[in-house]
Simulated scan of single mutants.
Amino acid sequence: MATLVRAPWLVPIVGPPVADGGVLLNDRGRVLAAGPFSDVAAHPALRQWGRRASAWRAVDGVLMPALVNAHTHLELAWLAGRVGPGGPMPAWIERLLFVRERHPVPDTVMRRAAERLLAELHDQGVAAVLDIGNRSAASALDPPPGPSGRRLYRLFLHELLGAEPPPTPPEAPVTAHAPYSCGPRLLTWAKKESQRQGVPFSIHLAESAEEVVFLRHGSGPFADFFRRRGLVPPSRPGQNPIAYLDRLGVLDASTVCVHVVHATSNDLALLARRGVKVVLCPGSNRFIGVGRPDVAGMLAA
């Protein structure tokens, strides 16, 4: 049965808002047509099925596509309220690690918090999430069904850190954390694995000024962070983050760069030439205090 839905406004995202909009759905909920109600109501499929095979309803609101959260860390949902705001970035990471390491929680607690967050996202109109985590139990999260009975779609990527590829790869599809926390061999290996597995290669990139300083000069708060934790930095390329990843050959149309707050106009032009997808996280940027991305520059590039 086809369903014709009418609303005062249709916001298709790919085009301007439409007053008195309509959407036509088939019996599987797939959109057959969207636009001015008068045009959608004249769709050939309605004549083909006839009135008995179609339903009509009006909503007092806005029709728009379901939302996609293209970057989330559901395994960290249990930390809400336990790690305060404010940077700089390495200091905030240390506070997060302190809570995780000194006050670990069992997988059941992590799963319950993540499932609550998934339910909240579903209620807010989110239909799909790209979830990043490095805890094996996070890969088994099962999104609960929403009020309509439909489940939120979730793609989980196992996030890797360090200098080298793991001797035994995780069962879930993999990705890399960031250029300051992953060595070049791990970055290129994870990129190839993501291509082989047919999933996006998602990576935190140019999130903070401290990241840029560390990758270009090997100094600053991130250098102190590695020293305090007794770690050897996996990479110090002497380049800014975006130029470094481009040199490694991991920037292309299947790469998803997350944050991209500290990028020059040349950086943004390079990302555009490579066909890279950029995901912005304004809430996270405000919370940690890393700055604002150049959205106008991204659109112009």
Rank of each mutant, 00 (worst) to 15 (best):
E210W: 03
G149K: 05
R150N: 04
P179C: 07
I132M: 11
Y180T: 02
Y180L: 01
E159S: 09
S181W: 03
L205F: 06
V129A: 11
D131M: 07
L152A: 07
L186H: 06
E159Y: 04
P167F: 07
A137F: 02
E210I: 10
H177Y: 02
A190G: 10
P179S: 08
V174H: 12
P169I: 03
E207S: 04
E211N: 10
A137Q: 09
A137P: 00
A137I: 01
D142P: 02
G133R: 04
H158D: 14
R196I: 02
E207M: 03
T188S: 14
L141N: 07
P170G: 09
L161C: 09
C182K: 06
E164K: 06
S181M: 01
A127Q: 03
K191L: 05
G146C: 08
C182Q: 07
N134M: 11
R154T: 09
P165C: 07
I203Y: 00
G162T: 13
L157V: 06
C182L: 08
D142A: 15
L187N: 02
A172I: 01
G133V: 02
S208K: 06
S194M: 05
H158W: 13
A127C: 12
P169M: 06
G162E: 08
E207I: 02
R154A: 14
N134G: 15
D142K: 11
L141C: 06
K191N: 02
S181I: 03
I203G: 00
P166F: 05
E159K: 08
F201E: 03
P184L: 10
G149E: 02
S139W: 13
T175C: 14
S136Y: 04
P145K: 13
L130H: 14
L205T: 14
N134T: 15
S139N: 05
P165G: 07
A176E: 03
L205K: 09
S208F: 07
A209R: 13
F156Y: 15
P143I: 05
A190K: 07
L160Q: 13
R135G: 02
Q197P: 05
A178R: 10
R150M: 04
G198D: 07
G149V: 05
E211S: 12
V199S: 01
V129D: 08
P147V: 10
H177L: 04
A163P: 06
A178V: 10
N134A: 11
Q197Y: 01
A138W: 02
I203A: 00
P200G: 06
R185D: 14
E171A: 15
P145G: 12
T175V: 10
V129L: 05
R135D: 08
L155F: 06
P200Q: 05
P200F: 03
A209E: 13
